[in-house]
Design a binder for these strands. Structure first.
Lengths: 196, 196
DNA sequence: AGCACTTCTTGCCAAATGACAAGTGGATTA
DNA sequence: TAATCCACTTGTCATTTGGCAAGAAGTGCT
Protein backbone atom coordinates (compact mmCIF):
# COMPACT_ATOMS: atom_id res chain seq x y z
CA UNK A 1 0.00 0.00 0.00
CA UNK A 2 1.01 3.57 -0.54
CA UNK A 3 2.39 4.22 2.87
CA UNK A 4 4.27 7.25 1.61
CA UNK A 5 0.92 9.01 1.54
CA UNK A 6 0.41 8.48 5.26
CA UNK A 7 0.31 12.25 5.66
CA UNK A 8 -2.65 12.62 3.30
CA UNK A 9 -4.51 9.75 4.94
CA UNK A 10 -3.86 11.16 8.38
CA UNK A 11 -5.04 14.60 7.32
CA UNK A 12 -8.48 13.30 6.34
CA UNK A 13 -8.77 10.47 8.84
CA UNK A 14 -10.97 12.30 11.34
CA UNK A 15 -13.49 13.38 8.70
CA UNK A 16 -13.28 10.23 6.60
CA UNK A 17 -12.83 7.22 8.91
CA UNK A 18 -13.27 4.44 6.32
CA UNK A 19 -9.94 3.11 5.11
CA UNK A 20 -11.21 2.30 1.61
CA UNK A 21 -12.33 5.86 1.07
CA UNK A 22 -9.03 7.15 2.43
CA UNK A 23 -7.33 4.98 -0.15
CA UNK A 24 -9.29 6.57 -2.96
CA UNK A 25 -8.60 10.04 -1.65
CA UNK A 26 -4.89 9.42 -1.19
CA UNK A 27 -4.60 8.02 -4.72
CA UNK A 28 -5.55 11.40 -6.17
CA UNK A 29 -2.85 13.38 -4.42
CA UNK A 30 0.64 13.72 -5.86
CA UNK A 31 3.85 14.67 -4.17
CA UNK A 32 5.15 18.20 -4.64
CA UNK A 33 8.46 19.72 -3.63
CA UNK A 34 9.11 23.45 -3.67
CA UNK A 35 12.51 25.06 -3.24
CA UNK A 36 12.96 27.99 -0.92
CA UNK A 37 11.89 31.25 -2.61
CA UNK A 38 10.04 29.39 -5.37
CA UNK A 39 6.36 29.92 -6.03
CA UNK A 40 3.36 27.63 -5.80
CA UNK A 41 1.21 30.28 -7.47
CA UNK A 42 1.92 33.49 -9.35
CA UNK A 43 -0.39 36.49 -9.45
CA UNK A 44 -2.40 36.52 -12.67
CA UNK A 45 -2.39 32.73 -13.09
CA UNK A 46 -5.25 30.44 -12.16
CA UNK A 47 -4.54 28.39 -9.07
CA UNK A 48 -4.34 24.78 -10.29
CA UNK A 49 -3.12 22.98 -7.21
CA UNK A 50 -4.71 22.45 -3.85
CA UNK A 51 -1.72 21.77 -1.61
CA UNK A 52 -1.50 20.01 1.74
CA UNK A 53 1.76 21.21 3.20
CA UNK A 54 3.62 18.41 4.99
CA UNK A 55 6.77 20.33 5.84
CA UNK A 56 8.19 23.77 5.27
CA UNK A 57 6.75 27.26 5.46
CA UNK A 58 4.98 29.50 2.96
CA UNK A 59 3.41 32.91 2.58
CA UNK A 60 0.86 34.53 0.29
CA UNK A 61 1.35 38.11 -0.83
CA UNK A 62 0.02 40.64 -3.28
CA UNK A 63 1.09 44.03 -4.55
CA UNK A 64 -0.68 47.24 -3.61
CA UNK A 65 -1.23 50.13 -6.00
CA UNK A 66 2.28 51.48 -5.36
CA UNK A 67 3.83 48.08 -6.00
CA UNK A 68 4.66 47.26 -2.39
CA UNK A 69 4.37 43.65 -1.31
CA UNK A 70 1.67 42.94 1.24
CA UNK A 71 1.82 39.58 2.95
CA UNK A 72 -1.70 38.23 3.34
CA UNK A 73 -1.11 34.85 4.94
CA UNK A 74 1.45 32.47 6.42
CA UNK A 75 1.20 28.70 6.12
CA UNK A 76 2.94 26.15 8.33
CA UNK A 77 3.20 22.38 8.09
CA UNK A 78 -0.16 20.63 8.28
CA UNK A 79 -2.11 23.39 6.58
CA UNK A 80 -3.94 23.47 3.25
CA UNK A 81 -2.41 26.05 0.92
CA UNK A 82 -4.26 27.54 -2.07
CA UNK A 83 -5.93 30.71 -3.25
CA UNK A 84 -9.60 30.11 -2.45
CA UNK A 85 -11.04 32.54 -4.98
CA UNK A 86 -8.75 31.62 -7.86
CA UNK A 87 -8.92 27.88 -7.27
CA UNK A 88 -12.68 27.56 -6.88
CA UNK A 89 -13.83 30.29 -9.23
CA UNK A 90 -11.17 29.56 -11.87
CA UNK A 91 -10.19 33.21 -12.04
CA UNK A 92 -6.72 34.82 -12.20
CA UNK A 93 -5.12 34.97 -8.77
CA UNK A 94 -4.74 38.36 -7.12
CA UNK A 95 -1.85 37.10 -5.07
CA UNK A 96 1.23 34.90 -5.21
CA UNK A 97 2.19 32.05 -2.90
CA UNK A 98 5.86 31.54 -2.15
CA UNK A 99 7.97 29.13 -0.13
CA UNK A 100 9.94 30.80 2.67
CA UNK A 101 11.65 27.48 3.41
CA UNK A 102 12.09 24.25 1.43
CA UNK A 103 8.60 22.72 1.26
CA UNK A 104 7.13 19.31 0.64
CA UNK A 105 3.48 18.38 0.41
CA UNK A 106 0.72 16.82 -1.63
CA UNK A 107 -1.36 18.37 -4.37
CA UNK A 108 -4.61 17.65 -6.16
CA UNK A 109 -6.14 19.39 -9.18
CA UNK A 110 -9.47 21.19 -9.25
CA UNK A 111 -11.10 18.51 -11.40
CA UNK A 112 -9.89 15.64 -9.28
CA UNK A 113 -10.88 17.39 -6.09
CA UNK A 114 -14.35 18.00 -7.43
CA UNK A 115 -14.70 14.37 -8.44
CA UNK A 116 -13.87 13.33 -4.90
CA UNK A 117 -16.26 15.90 -3.49
CA UNK A 118 -19.06 14.45 -5.59
CA UNK A 119 -18.30 10.82 -4.86
CA UNK A 120 -17.44 10.97 -1.15
CA UNK A 121 -19.87 13.01 0.98
CA UNK A 122 -17.66 12.95 4.08
CA UNK A 123 -14.79 14.29 2.03
CA UNK A 124 -16.75 17.26 0.83
CA UNK A 125 -17.77 17.97 4.41
CA UNK A 126 -14.08 18.20 5.27
CA UNK A 127 -13.58 20.46 2.29
CA UNK A 128 -16.36 22.74 3.43
CA UNK A 129 -14.91 22.76 6.94
CA UNK A 130 -11.56 23.96 5.60
CA UNK A 131 -13.27 26.80 3.74
CA UNK A 132 -15.36 27.77 6.73
CA UNK A 133 -12.43 27.74 9.13
CA UNK A 134 -10.40 29.91 6.78
CA UNK A 135 -13.29 32.30 6.52
CA UNK A 136 -13.69 32.44 10.29
CA UNK A 137 -10.04 33.14 10.96
CA UNK A 138 -9.94 35.85 8.32
CA UNK A 139 -12.91 37.44 10.02
CA UNK A 140 -11.16 37.33 13.36
CA UNK A 141 -8.16 39.00 11.80
CA UNK A 142 -10.34 41.75 10.35
CA UNK A 143 -11.98 42.28 13.73
CA UNK A 144 -8.55 42.52 15.33
CA UNK A 145 -7.38 44.94 12.65
CA UNK A 146 -10.32 47.24 13.39
CA UNK A 147 -10.42 47.11 17.17
CA UNK A 148 -6.87 46.53 18.36
CA UNK A 149 -3.69 48.57 18.27
CA UNK A 150 -0.75 47.40 16.20
CA UNK A 151 1.12 46.58 19.40
CA UNK A 152 -1.67 44.30 20.61
CA UNK A 153 -1.92 42.61 17.22
CA UNK A 154 1.82 42.00 17.29
CA UNK A 155 1.73 40.59 20.81
CA UNK A 156 -1.14 38.27 19.97
CA UNK A 157 0.50 36.99 16.80
CA UNK A 158 3.70 36.34 18.70
CA UNK A 159 1.77 34.41 21.32
CA UNK A 160 -0.47 32.39 19.04
CA UNK A 161 1.88 31.81 16.08
CA UNK A 162 5.46 32.01 17.33
CA UNK A 163 6.65 29.82 14.44
CA UNK A 164 5.98 32.69 12.06
CA UNK A 165 8.67 34.71 13.81
CA UNK A 166 11.15 31.91 13.39
CA UNK A 167 10.54 31.58 9.67
CA UNK A 168 9.55 34.94 8.22
CA UNK A 169 11.50 38.20 8.07
CA UNK A 170 9.98 41.05 10.04
CA UNK A 171 9.06 43.06 6.98
CA UNK A 172 6.66 40.34 5.89
CA UNK A 173 5.18 40.18 9.37
CA UNK A 174 4.83 43.96 9.40
CA UNK A 175 2.73 44.11 6.26
CA UNK A 176 0.70 41.14 7.50
CA UNK A 177 -0.05 43.17 10.64
CA UNK A 178 -0.92 46.19 8.52
CA UNK A 179 2.00 48.41 9.53
CA UNK A 180 5.40 49.40 8.13
CA UNK A 181 8.55 47.62 9.14
CA UNK A 182 9.77 50.77 10.87
CA UNK A 183 6.69 50.84 13.06
CA UNK A 184 7.07 47.19 13.89
CA UNK A 185 10.66 47.81 14.86
CA UNK A 186 9.60 50.62 17.20
CA UNK A 187 6.89 48.44 18.73
CA UNK A 188 9.43 45.73 19.41
CA UNK A 189 11.73 48.23 21.08
CA UNK A 190 8.96 49.47 23.35
CA UNK A 191 8.03 45.94 24.37
CA UNK A 192 11.64 44.96 25.06
CA UNK A 193 12.00 48.05 27.26
CA UNK A 194 8.95 47.08 29.28
CA UNK A 195 10.40 43.64 29.88
CA UNK A 196 13.50 44.96 31.66
CA UNK B 1 -47.56 26.30 -8.07
CA UNK B 2 -45.84 28.23 -5.37
CA UNK B 3 -45.40 31.41 -7.26
CA UNK B 4 -44.84 33.36 -4.07
CA UNK B 5 -41.43 31.72 -3.96
CA UNK B 6 -40.46 33.20 -7.31
CA UNK B 7 -37.64 35.01 -5.55
CA UNK B 8 -36.07 31.80 -4.29
CA UNK B 9 -36.42 30.13 -7.66
CA UNK B 10 -34.92 33.12 -9.39
CA UNK B 11 -32.03 33.23 -6.96
CA UNK B 12 -30.94 29.70 -7.84
CA UNK B 13 -32.03 29.64 -11.46
CA UNK B 14 -28.62 30.29 -12.98
CA UNK B 15 -26.92 27.54 -10.99
CA UNK B 16 -29.84 25.10 -11.06
CA UNK B 17 -31.63 25.37 -14.42
CA UNK B 18 -33.99 22.39 -14.06
CA UNK B 19 -37.44 23.46 -12.96
CA UNK B 20 -38.14 20.26 -11.00
CA UNK B 21 -35.03 20.76 -8.89
CA UNK B 22 -35.92 24.39 -8.36
CA UNK B 23 -39.29 23.18 -7.10
CA UNK B 24 -37.65 20.95 -4.53
CA UNK B 25 -35.32 23.70 -3.43
CA UNK B 26 -38.07 26.30 -3.14
CA UNK B 27 -40.19 23.91 -1.09
CA UNK B 28 -37.62 23.94 1.69
CA UNK B 29 -37.52 27.70 2.14
CA UNK B 30 -39.97 29.48 4.41
CA UNK B 31 -40.95 33.10 4.46
CA UNK B 32 -39.47 35.31 7.15
CA UNK B 33 -40.29 38.87 8.10
CA UNK B 34 -38.11 40.95 10.38
CA UNK B 35 -39.11 44.29 11.87
CA UNK B 36 -36.70 47.20 11.80
CA UNK B 37 -34.17 46.93 14.67
CA UNK B 38 -35.04 43.29 15.31
CA UNK B 39 -32.41 40.56 15.12
CA UNK B 40 -31.99 37.57 12.85
CA UNK B 41 -29.17 36.31 15.07
CA UNK B 42 -27.90 37.18 18.52
CA UNK B 43 -24.30 36.83 19.66
CA UNK B 44 -23.82 33.63 21.64
CA UNK B 45 -26.62 31.75 19.88
CA UNK B 46 -26.10 29.24 17.11
CA UNK B 47 -27.14 30.56 13.72
CA UNK B 48 -30.14 28.41 12.70
CA UNK B 49 -31.36 30.20 9.64
CA UNK B 50 -29.77 30.72 6.26
CA UNK B 51 -31.61 33.77 4.93
CA UNK B 52 -32.08 35.00 1.39
CA UNK B 53 -32.98 38.64 1.77
CA UNK B 54 -35.66 39.69 -0.68
CA UNK B 55 -36.16 43.23 0.57
CA UNK B 56 -34.83 45.45 3.33
CA UNK B 57 -31.39 46.09 4.74
CA UNK B 58 -29.34 44.43 7.48
CA UNK B 59 -26.01 44.62 9.24
CA UNK B 60 -23.83 42.26 11.25
CA UNK B 61 -21.95 43.56 14.27
CA UNK B 62 -19.96 42.36 17.24
CA UNK B 63 -18.66 43.91 20.44
CA UNK B 64 -14.99 44.62 21.01
CA UNK B 65 -13.26 44.16 24.37
CA UNK B 66 -14.44 47.59 25.58
CA UNK B 67 -18.03 46.82 24.59
CA UNK B 68 -18.16 49.04 21.52
CA UNK B 69 -20.19 47.86 18.57
CA UNK B 70 -18.19 47.08 15.44
CA UNK B 71 -20.19 46.66 12.25
CA UNK B 72 -18.71 43.80 10.24
CA UNK B 73 -21.05 43.61 7.27
CA UNK B 74 -23.98 45.18 5.48
CA UNK B 75 -26.55 43.19 3.53
CA UNK B 76 -28.87 44.50 0.84
CA UNK B 77 -31.76 42.89 -1.01
CA UNK B 78 -30.73 39.86 -3.05
CA UNK B 79 -27.96 38.76 -0.70
CA UNK B 80 -27.63 35.65 1.48
CA UNK B 81 -27.45 36.59 5.15
CA UNK B 82 -26.03 34.28 7.83
CA UNK B 83 -23.01 33.85 10.08
CA UNK B 84 -20.81 31.45 8.13
CA UNK B 85 -18.84 30.10 11.07
CA UNK B 86 -21.77 29.69 13.43
CA UNK B 87 -24.13 28.25 10.84
CA UNK B 88 -21.77 25.69 9.34
CA UNK B 89 -19.74 24.77 12.40
CA UNK B 90 -22.72 24.85 14.78
CA UNK B 91 -20.85 27.04 17.23
CA UNK B 92 -22.06 30.11 19.18
CA UNK B 93 -22.06 33.21 17.01
CA UNK B 94 -19.49 35.90 17.72
CA UNK B 95 -21.70 38.52 16.16
CA UNK B 96 -25.31 39.63 15.87
CA UNK B 97 -27.31 40.34 12.74
CA UNK B 98 -29.88 43.09 12.84
CA UNK B 99 -32.41 44.65 10.49
CA UNK B 100 -31.76 48.32 9.75
CA UNK B 101 -35.01 48.47 7.78
CA UNK B 102 -38.08 46.24 7.65
CA UNK B 103 -36.94 43.04 5.99
CA UNK B 104 -38.52 40.15 4.17
CA UNK B 105 -36.86 37.04 2.86
CA UNK B 106 -36.69 33.28 2.81
CA UNK B 107 -34.98 30.97 5.30
CA UNK B 108 -33.85 27.37 5.42
CA UNK B 109 -32.45 25.38 8.34
CA UNK B 110 -29.00 23.80 8.51
CA UNK B 111 -30.40 20.28 8.28
CA UNK B 112 -32.64 21.03 5.33
CA UNK B 113 -29.88 22.89 3.53
CA UNK B 114 -27.53 19.95 3.99
CA UNK B 115 -30.14 17.56 2.67
CA UNK B 116 -30.44 19.65 -0.46
CA UNK B 117 -26.66 19.89 -0.78
CA UNK B 118 -26.41 16.12 -0.69
CA UNK B 119 -29.25 15.45 -3.09
CA UNK B 120 -28.70 18.20 -5.66
CA UNK B 121 -25.09 18.58 -6.85
CA UNK B 122 -25.76 21.83 -8.74
CA UNK B 123 -27.25 23.30 -5.60
CA UNK B 124 -24.19 22.57 -3.54
CA UNK B 125 -22.05 24.17 -6.22
CA UNK B 126 -24.10 27.31 -5.78
CA UNK B 127 -23.65 27.01 -2.03
CA UNK B 128 -19.90 26.74 -2.41
CA UNK B 129 -19.90 29.70 -4.76
CA UNK B 130 -21.63 31.83 -2.13
CA UNK B 131 -19.01 30.87 0.43
CA UNK B 132 -16.14 31.51 -1.93
CA UNK B 133 -17.44 34.89 -3.03
CA UNK B 134 -17.91 35.95 0.57
CA UNK B 135 -14.37 34.85 1.32
CA UNK B 136 -12.99 36.74 -1.66
CA UNK B 137 -14.74 39.98 -0.80
CA UNK B 138 -13.59 39.77 2.81
CA UNK B 139 -10.05 39.36 1.56
CA UNK B 140 -10.38 42.40 -0.67
CA UNK B 141 -11.60 44.36 2.31
CA UNK B 142 -8.64 43.26 4.40
CA UNK B 143 -6.27 44.24 1.61
CA UNK B 144 -7.90 47.63 1.42
CA UNK B 145 -7.70 48.02 5.20
CA UNK B 146 -3.96 47.40 5.09
CA UNK B 147 -2.95 49.38 2.04
CA UNK B 148 -5.38 52.28 1.77
CA UNK B 149 -6.06 55.34 3.85
CA UNK B 150 -9.37 55.73 5.62
CA UNK B 151 -10.29 58.47 3.18
CA UNK B 152 -9.73 56.20 0.19
CA UNK B 153 -11.69 53.38 1.80
CA UNK B 154 -14.55 55.78 2.42
CA UNK B 155 -14.50 57.06 -1.14
CA UNK B 156 -14.47 53.56 -2.57
CA UNK B 157 -17.32 52.35 -0.38
CA UNK B 158 -19.37 55.38 -1.35
CA UNK B 159 -18.73 54.65 -5.00
CA UNK B 160 -19.30 50.90 -4.96
CA UNK B 161 -22.05 50.62 -2.33
CA UNK B 162 -23.92 53.90 -2.24
CA UNK B 163 -27.05 52.16 -0.91
CA UNK B 164 -25.24 51.63 2.40
CA UNK B 165 -25.11 55.39 2.88
CA UNK B 166 -28.83 55.65 2.31
CA UNK B 167 -29.68 52.99 4.85
CA UNK B 168 -27.07 52.97 7.62
CA UNK B 169 -26.09 55.69 10.10
CA UNK B 170 -22.55 57.00 9.72
CA UNK B 171 -21.38 55.51 13.01
CA UNK B 172 -22.01 52.02 11.67
CA UNK B 173 -20.21 52.87 8.47
CA UNK B 174 -17.32 54.30 10.46
CA UNK B 175 -16.70 51.13 12.47
CA UNK B 176 -17.10 49.11 9.26
CA UNK B 177 -14.33 51.23 7.75
CA UNK B 178 -12.21 50.76 10.86
CA UNK B 179 -12.33 54.34 12.13
CA UNK B 180 -14.28 56.38 14.67
CA UNK B 181 -17.32 58.38 13.75
CA UNK B 182 -15.41 61.59 14.51
CA UNK B 183 -12.73 60.69 12.02
CA UNK B 184 -15.30 59.81 9.40
CA UNK B 185 -16.94 63.15 9.96
CA UNK B 186 -13.62 64.95 9.46
CA UNK B 187 -12.97 62.95 6.29
CA UNK B 188 -16.35 63.93 4.92
CA UNK B 189 -15.61 67.58 5.67
CA UNK B 190 -12.29 67.45 3.83
CA UNK B 191 -13.88 65.83 0.80
CA UNK B 192 -16.72 68.34 0.67
CA UNK B 193 -14.17 71.17 0.83
CA UNK B 194 -12.30 69.73 -2.13
CA UNK B 195 -15.48 69.59 -4.17
CA UNK B 196 -16.08 73.35 -3.93
C1' DA C 1 -46.13 70.44 22.32
C1' DG C 2 -42.44 68.88 25.06
C1' DC C 3 -38.86 65.79 26.26
C1' DA C 4 -35.45 62.47 25.65
C1' DC C 5 -32.60 60.28 22.51
C1' DT C 6 -29.82 59.78 18.49
C1' DT C 7 -26.99 61.44 14.83
C1' DC C 8 -23.61 64.16 13.17
C1' DT C 9 -20.23 67.74 13.51
C1' DT C 10 -16.44 70.31 15.52
C1' DG C 11 -12.47 71.82 18.44
C1' DC C 12 -8.58 70.65 21.14
C1' DC C 13 -4.86 67.92 22.25
C1' DA C 14 -2.37 63.47 22.62
C1' DA C 15 -0.94 59.19 20.65
C1' DA C 16 0.02 56.23 16.83
C1' DT C 17 1.86 55.64 12.54
C1' DG C 18 4.06 56.77 8.09
C1' DA C 19 7.77 58.63 5.01
C1' DC C 20 12.39 59.16 4.37
C1' DA C 21 17.11 58.70 5.18
C1' DA C 22 21.03 56.88 7.47
C1' DG C 23 23.63 53.39 9.77
C1' DT C 24 24.89 48.68 11.58
C1' DG C 25 25.68 43.92 11.18
C1' DG C 26 25.22 39.65 8.85
C1' DA C 27 24.84 36.84 4.78
C1' DT C 28 25.81 36.01 0.04
C1' DT C 29 28.41 36.21 -3.96
C1' DA C 30 31.94 37.40 -7.43
C1' DT D 1 38.71 39.07 0.40
C1' DA D 2 36.09 42.62 -1.18
C1' DA D 3 31.88 44.09 -2.76
C1' DT D 4 27.14 43.84 -2.51
C1' DC D 5 22.83 43.02 -0.80
C1' DC D 6 19.43 42.30 2.82
C1' DA D 7 17.31 42.68 7.36
C1' DC D 8 16.68 45.43 10.96
C1' DT D 9 17.00 49.56 13.68
C1' DT D 10 16.88 54.44 14.66
C1' DG D 11 16.12 59.49 14.22
C1' DT D 12 13.40 63.33 12.58
C1' DC D 13 9.36 65.27 11.20
C1' DA D 14 4.67 65.31 9.13
C1' DT D 15 0.24 63.24 8.90
C1' DT D 16 -3.44 60.54 10.45
C1' DT D 17 -6.31 59.13 13.83
C1' DG D 18 -8.26 58.72 18.49
C1' DG D 19 -10.30 60.42 22.92
C1' DC D 20 -13.13 63.54 24.90
C1' DA D 21 -16.45 67.01 25.36
C1' DA D 22 -19.73 70.22 23.58
C1' DG D 23 -23.28 71.64 20.61
C1' DA D 24 -26.64 71.68 16.66
C1' DA D 25 -30.12 69.39 14.27
C1' DG D 26 -33.21 65.83 13.62
C1' DT D 27 -36.19 61.81 15.31
C1' DG D 28 -39.33 59.55 17.93
C1' DC D 29 -42.19 58.94 21.83
C1' DT D 30 -45.73 60.38 25.30
Amino acid sequence: MENEKAFVRHFFQVGVPQSEKLDIIAQHFHEKLIDKHDHLLNEGKISQEYLLLESGFMRAYSLDTEGNEVTTAFYGAGQPVFDVASFFMRTPAKESIQALAPCSGWVISFEELNKLFHSIPEFREVGRGILVKGYASLKLRMQSMITETAETRYAMLLQTNPEIFRQAPLKHIASYLGITDSSLSRIRREISRQHK
